[in-house]
Amino acid sequence: MPYPEEMVAPMRAELTDNGVEELRTADAVKQFLERNKDKSAMIVLNSVCGCAAGAARPGILLSLEGDKKPAAVGTVFAGNDTDAVAYVRSLVPQAPPSSPSVYMFKQGKPVAYVPRHVFEGGYPESVAEHLRNEYAKL
């Protein structure tokens, strides 16, 4: 059962109000990756989890303030955008389901993945540093 939309709306907005593209369906994810297949792209698997609020979302936004970053950033929401989430997860089948998490793509191919445990107990600054290190792969 999805979370009430009015509950997750502010959590979505924290990213989408800052330039992250919302991808609510599998088709939207496919189109996003197709549109950016010649560039680098990142998809944030957002969630209601406390570590998403305290570490992942603010850390992701902080990481995007740097020069080296993905050319395009999209987001899907665990528990609500069910098909979109399933499609994103299918692109990296060796990764167990994990949210929040971050998927990075270069020329349409997955090149990096950041699972939930990296965000747990973290601070925005430490998350941003971890992500910036991953951006070097893009």
Binding site: A95, P96, Y113
Partner: peptide, 9 residues
Amino acid sequence: TAAQWGHWP
């Protein structure tokens, strides 16, 4: 492997 990808519950 788990550190890189996570673990299966």
